[in-house]
Design a protein around this nucleic acid. Structure first.
Length: 219
DNA sequence: ATCCCGAGGG
DNA sequence: CCCTCTGGAT
């Protein structure tokens, strides 16, 4: 018999209240000066730390603060690959970013479309990336389910056990208090990145330890 | 289900 | 050494 590991609605509200107080500064940490740069950064951040993405892009953005789709097309895929070489999955990402830039130029005058369907048509952009873009640029209450959000959701007991990220997203959106709907994604990211880490979570120091079910945590 | 694949941490 | 990092396309 499979035990249902889930905290109740009241506990869920408390979790977000405490986490919001713990991480009031939670926000996107990817370097960017415009919509295009954010889109590129989010695409590059797949299976990579935001630190590694910032480290690779910083010199480029320093030299070219208004770096745009047109600029990426002009510099070429090979040159861009050299820039992002230190990031994992670089060849695939360079190809996707270059193709993406060309599509933006041809279809949207170089702008980033702020609609889910159009975003997800772009190479290298899936549901998670689209959710981040819509959240950061439009302040929409989307829930991008990445490795952190998936881990914390299961661990704390915010959602039922499943590897289906769309299901996790839907369940989370139902359970997150309205007040924190827009911030919730980054609140979870910060807690996952800096505290409730994958391997050795710092449970002794955790502000929600009394509420957490610690599903799968073995010390 | 499997492939893409580099740096940083433990 | 092994695991992890704001996944996506096939």
């Amino acid at each position: 018999m499979k035990e249902v590991k889930l905290i109740n609605k009241k506990q869920c509200d408390e979790v977000f209240k405490i986490l919001f107080q713990t991480w009031p500064q939670a926000q996107c940490e990817l370097l960017h000066n415009n919509h295009f740069q954010l889109l590129i950064a989010v695409v590059l951040s797949a299976q990579a730390t935001d630190k590694s993405v910032n480290k690779a892009l910083e010199p480029l953005l320093q030299q070219s603060p208004f770096f745009s789709a047109a600029d990426l097309i002009e510099m070429g895929e090979e040159s861009f690959l050299k820039v992002i070489k230190s990031i994992g999955l670089a060849p695939t990402k360079a190809r996707n970013c270059f193709k993406l830039a060309k599509i933006l130029q041809e279809k949207y005058l170089g702008d980033v479309p702020l609609e889910r369907e159009k975003l997800e048509e772009l190479p290298g952009v899936g549901r998670k990336t689209a959710n981040v873009i819509l959240n950061v640029l439009c302040n929409l209450p989307t829930m991008a389910v990445d490795t952190h959000v998936e881990r914390l959701s299961q661990r704390i007991g915010l959602v039922l056990q499943t590897k289906d990220r769309l299901k996790i997203e839907e369940e989370l959106l139902k359970r997150v208090p309205q007040k924190y709907a827009v911030k919730a994604h980054h609140i979870l990211i910060f807690h996952g990145r800096y505290h409730c880490v994958a391997r050795k979570p710092k449970c002794e120091l955790c502000p929600i330890e009394h509420l957490c079910l610690k599903v799968g945590v073995t010390h």
